[in-house]
Amino acid sequence: MSNIPDITVQNLGKTYEVPQREPGLGAALKSLISRTTRDVEAVKNISFSVAPGEIVGFLGPNGAGKTTTLKMLSGLLHPTAGEISVIGHTPYARHKNFLNRITLVMGQRNQLMWDIPVADSFERNRAIYRISHGEYKKTLDELSTLLDLSDLLSKPVRNLSLGERMKCEIAAALLHRPQVLFLDEPTIGLDVTMQRRIRAFLGEYNRRHSATVLLTSHYMADVEALCKRVIIIHHGELLFDGDLSALIERFSPHKTIVVDLETERADLSSYGEVITAEGNSVTLRVPKTKTADVTGKLLANLPVIDLTVEDPPIEEVIEQVFSN
């Protein structure tokens, strides 16, 4: 592994010019004569870099500028400010050597041909990327095993379930063994089992091939399972870039304490904010700085069977980040 990052982004910005019009017929007529436009800054002055083999979670609420950034990184959009370098290329030049080594998977778009068997769509990609038959067979075998595709390959895409189709989409996007993977919501709309499956696959793929992955997802389970590091953007601006643990440290002022007691329905509201109390189990939220203190008091004053201190769910932390 070299020290040169696979992805370098410096002061990246993207401003869209959006036509603006009041509702109604009069406004429509007026817009024929003079069109007014408004500049929308989708991405503002973002900088980061990603090392080869790293998996980074790229998080933000809807409309934060995640997809716009991924599109700029994969060469579909031209930035209006700043510099991008991906594996030594400027993406929007769309050089063949660049396109041959990257992939972009968008959970809500499909590239497989709808009416023909999956294997035939794969064959098309084989030809486009000029993959030798030997190499192709090896990769397909590997992907088939990891994603359990063997029964799906002979089916037309239209006959697949959403989850099955997503697995095939991901396989199609990886046939050429890209070094850099841009994944935009690869698990959107999938059930928990399928999400887990795809998550496990992506982790395994990254380990085997040292692929660099930039992943967006609204499912925190994806992020927790795969990404040591996260980048968070909000309103187009970079809010956080660092380890997931540091994110929790920084943005969550609370810890969660779960206590199992010998007695039922104990009132623990004097120790902290009671989130749930069911039977003899009580969940408390306490300020981080008071955790040790509260834990000590609980153990000293109450018939405790079991006690665990946890970080709050990552969803809660993220929500906290965005509410600031």
Partner: peptide, 22 residues
Amino acid sequence: KHYTATYWAFFKTSLLEQFQYR
């Protein structure tokens, strides 16, 4: 030669697809 191979793959898949819309 590459182009011939790619064209052949495009040709085959297009034929397969269009056959669906007889």
